[in-house]
């Protein structure tokens, strides 16, 4: 049994079939790539997995639990975290607060503790802050911990989003075009970071990316979709040689 199982999922928007009969199986520890031309349905698949949309048909299981009717927050609590294609940080919070927020769902403090500011709460706050700092250090963001997230340069904002997602202690991490807008140097750095995070935190990573260098360099298994359907599945080498993939990207002869 996989950590993330998508079985025969279909999603329609009116007459448009955005995702058709999709199957996907991620094993624990996978670094899995999802690619496809523009409009292939990649983001819809992400939204199905994270609970933004419910599939019309089929099922999605996270670690053996069917989640395809759940709300996004509940799915996140079960162990799924994500980043966004267009960065969605909490702009009016500091870098540190952004990371600390990710721990909200695992808090032990009650409302009463918060209002009275009990010792129990102070202990927990200290622990959360410590953990957040440790994580920020890993991603080289600790020196800017007290700046507003909106003041960070673009590349750092991308890294902060990944940091925040990791702070939720997920089982599965979904990265939606993490290399978008990065220069080759930053992209190489990101690849290293993705691989390192997978090994360090022993998580499963699903990656949507347009930058082929990143996808081919970092993913061990790649699934190619076009018009909502899977057209190829295999290792980077197999994918690169697949005639159907070449056709989807470059157009048929």
């Amino acid at each position: 049994m996989g950590i993330l199982d998508i079985k025969a999922c279909t999603k329609r928007f009116g007459g448009l079939v955005a995702v058709k009969d999709l199957n996907m199986a991620l094993q624990p520890g996978d670094l899995y790539g999802l690619i496809g031309p523009n409009g292939a349905g990649k983001t819809t698949i992400f939204n199905l997995i994270t609970g933004v949309y419910a599939p019309d048909e089929g099922s999605i299981e996270l670690d053996g639990t069917a989640i395809h009717r759940w709300k996004p927050a509940a799915i996140a609590r079960l162990g799924m975290s994500r980043t966004f294609q267009n960065i969605r940080l909490f702009q009016s919070m500091t870098v540190l607060e952004n990371v600390k927020l990710a721990r909200h769902m695992r808090k032990k403090q009650g409302l009463f503790d918060a209002i009275v500011r009990t010792e129990k709460l102070k202990e927990e706050e200290k622990e959360v802050e410590h953990d957040a700092y440790e994580l920020l250090k890993i991603f080289n963001l600790d020196t800017r911990a007290h700046e507003l997230a909106s003041n960070l340069p673009y590349g750092s904002q991308r890294r902060l989003e990944i940091t925040r997602a990791l702070a939720t202690k997920p089982k599965v991490l979904l990265l939606d075009e993490p290399a978008a807008g990065m220069n080759p140097q930053e992209a190489r750095e990101l690849m290293r970071l993705i691989q390192w995070s997978r090994d360090q935190f022993q998580i499963t990573i699903l990656l949507v990316e347009h930058n082929m260098q990143v996808v081919m360099g970092v993913c061990e298994k790649i699934q190619v979709v076009d018009y909502g359907e899977t057209i190829a599945l295999g290792s980077p080498r197999e994918i690169q040689g697949d005639p159907k993939v070449i056709e989807a990207y470059l157009g048929g002869a």
């Binding site: 996004p72 996140a76 966004f84 607060e97 927020l101 769902m105 808090k107 403090q109 409302l111």
Partner: peptide, 24 residues
């Protein structure tokens, strides 16, 4: 407190807040 951060997260970006496990 943690609740305060959750309040602000809802103000800043509800979609991101949900994705971070905050029941908005």
């Amino acid at each position: 407190s943690s609740y305060g951060r959750a309040f602000v997260s809802v103000r800043d970006d509800e979609i991101a807040a949900e994705a971070m496990g905050v029941d908005t």
